[in-house]
Design a protein around this nucleic acid. Structure first.
Lengths: 218, 218
DNA sequence: GGCATCTATCTTGTATGCAATCTCGGACAT
DNA sequence: ATGTCCGAGATTGCATACAAGATAGATGCC
């Protein structure tokens, strides 16, 4: 939304969101306004506005007179998040194949080739960061602000559940191969091909998550 | 979101949203908190929370210390809204073709057949209402809450720009024919067919809007 | 006459206070 | 012993009050 927004409410919203995304505010935790207020050294008013904002992004649930809690997602809801994410990413890729400018296409290719080096090195952290940038550039490449915004929001929401995906052995190189199919389709303007390739890629991420979750649950 | 939410902020949010959607609050209008407050007979606090909520749905734009204005969309942005809408609706239709329960499928068919009668009668208002319900049932039929929510949000945002679409002569029957293709694909579980049919349908709506806008601009 | 600047006023952002509602613990009745 | 009802405490929702930044008009200067 508003990137440079110096109001306390905005800063609190991002601070609380960070807390939720990095796990320091676990799902199900009750967020009482008073506590958050004095914890951040402000009054209740900006806290209230931040909470209202977060509730619309789906990160927390607010019930009329019962306060706010960090959204506790059921497995079904997480599954839906991943499905929605895959669909939206695929749609963005399709539009990007049609709408990207030559400059954007060249940048996408350069970024992709840079990631191949990272994948070979096995630098998980750097690859993860580059991966976020890679996908984001496809969102913006769709040249459709509402879709791109929604994609970013979904990405934030699935973040807590996909943290360890690149830990799986060999995932980096496979990810790069899948990216390769996506990039080739986009560069050649193959809309449906880009859609299919991205859907395949993100669905595999989902599978990786499920495998990871299954091993952790066992 | 929260359907039965008796807080003033929620009621104000829907009231202001209605005002924007029905045109009584035209795009570009400045929304000063004080004015809205005494206009609705409340204090500024719930107004502020309502505005913050609306800003996240994209209906209004808020800038840090400069207040809120009703979103004034450029033609490009409106175009993007329609494109996003078409893509999301098509995605919902595809998922619906896969995920709808037998009961939902039968209800969809019944609703669709009922609309044929309305189209023949030429009852524009009733058809329009039924049309909203028809599309909404496909959103929920996707069994994917995030996507359905986003679709509803987009529908609200494009609302102001598609008000007169059914006024075009013969649009009702053509709409019904297009629905027929969508319904048939969904009922038969033809995922890609449902996607294509819905994309086609909504894109035609977009064309109708553009024709309408062109005639008005001329 | 035009433009910059300064100030007065207005609007927004934040804090605090009060009323209504919900939660939770205990007492009482069955 | 268990279920129900009631009341105190706590928390949310709303209103009001205060502070800070922005806008606009006027005034002085070029």
């Amino acid at each position: 939304m508003n990137s440079e927004n110096p109001t306390l409410a905005e800063k609190l919203a991002t601070a609380i969101a960070d807390g939720i995304l990095n796990g320091s505010l676990p799902p199900g935790l009750r967020l009482d306004e008073m506590g958050l207020a004095e914890q951040h050294g402000v009054s209740r008013t900006p806290v209230r506005e931040a909470l209202r904002q977060l509730s619309l992004s789906g990160l927390i649930d607010m019930r009329p007179r019962k306060g706010a809690v960090v959204s506790k997602a059921t497995p079904d809801q997480v599954e839906n998040l991943f499905v929605a994410m895959a669909e939206i990413e695929a749609t963005c890729a399709r539009l990007a194949a049609i709408s990207m400018t030559p400059v954007e296409r060249r940048r996408l290719q350069a970024r992709h080739e840079g990631m191949l080096a990272l994948a070979k090195t096995g630098d998980t952290g750097a690859y993860s960061d580059a991966n976020v940038a890679f996908h984001s550039s496809i969102y913006t490449g769709s040249h459709n602000a509402p879709l791109a915004e929604f994609a970013l929001n979904l990405r934030r929401r699935v973040g807590p559940f996909r943290r360890a995906q690149f830990q799986v052995e060999g995932r980096l190189l496979r990810s790069n191969q899948e990216h390769d199919a996506v990039v080739r389709a986009i560069l050649s303007g193959d809309a449906s091909g880009a859609h299919a390739a991205m859907l395949h890629h993100v669905s595999l991420v989902e599978d990786a998550f499920e495998a990871f979750a299954a091993t952790n649950a066992a």
